[in-house]
């Protein structure tokens, strides 16, 4: 066997793995509402993170740009809700982010569900946002999404999200309006429509 053969085999396998996700990608076109027909949310808003991914803080930045009143408290608990009218949760699981809070996945999921239950009990509008799309297609993010959807008033996400069909089925079965956009910065319009 030639000494270059192993390197060539590695190269071929690597390229197969590079193009494998593209082969698997669903090309199915979907039609979604561009935004809500009437606003649901009120200010002030509590922005929090489910999964503690660093990019979840982008939502609060959107809010600043749209001059929406609210606070970004990534580790907010159910007891923090009393001061706010709307709950916005950005979902994206980061192992390092969760470790940084001194928790683990189970504790983070429990905190999120408790928060959602409390908001539901208070009749607060809940906006669920998944801003990373398929980049954060990990299993924990998927679990957080599926367990949070039943509590949501509106769902915002990217069209290229992981297991999109499964998610749309879950959202539709709970009669939750949803909007999926192509690009991260396109989230701003439907996000604004939730409040105005």
């Amino acid at each position: 066997m030639n000494k270059y053969n192993v390197a060539i085999i590695c190269l071929v396998v690597a390229f197969y793995l590079f193009f494998y996700p593209s082969l698997q990608l669903s090309s199915q076109h979907i039609n979604v509402y561009p935004n809500l027909p009437a606003p649901l949310g009120k200010e002030p808003i509590l922005f929090t993170s489910a999964g503690q991914a660093a990019e979840n803080s982008i939502l609060s930045n959107f809010a600043n740009q749209l001059h929406l009143e609210g606070d970004y408290r990534p580790r907010a608990l159910a007891s923090d809700l009393y001061d706010y009218e709307t709950l916005v949760i950005a979902i994206g699981y980061s192992q390092n982010g969760v470790l940084n809070t001194g928790r683990n996945f189970q504790k983070e999921q429990k905190r999120t569900i408790t928060l959602l239950k409390e908001a539901k009990q208070r009749d607060m509008p809940i906006l669920l946002v998944q801003i990373a799309g398929k980049n954060r297609g990990n299993q924990h993010t998927q679990e957080l999404l599926l367990s949070s959807v039943p509590y949501a008033s509106y769902f915002l996400g990217l069209k290229n999200m992981n297991k999109r069909t499964e998610m749309i089925e879950k959202i539709s079965s709970n009669n939750i309006p949803y909007t999926l956009v192509s690009d991260l910065n396109d989230l701003k319009t439907p996000f604004n429509s939730f409040f105005r």
């Binding site: 593209s22 660093a54 982008i58 980049n135």
Partner: peptide, 24 residues
């Protein structure tokens, strides 16, 4: 290169999304 399953670790995702948000 994200479409080719490159840069799927925690920090790379956060950095790329932050860059998308800040500089497109």
């Amino acid at each position: 290169l994200s479409a080719f399953n490159i840069g799927t670790d925690d920090f790379a995702i956060a950095l790329k999304i932050a860059d998308k948000f800040l500089t497109g």
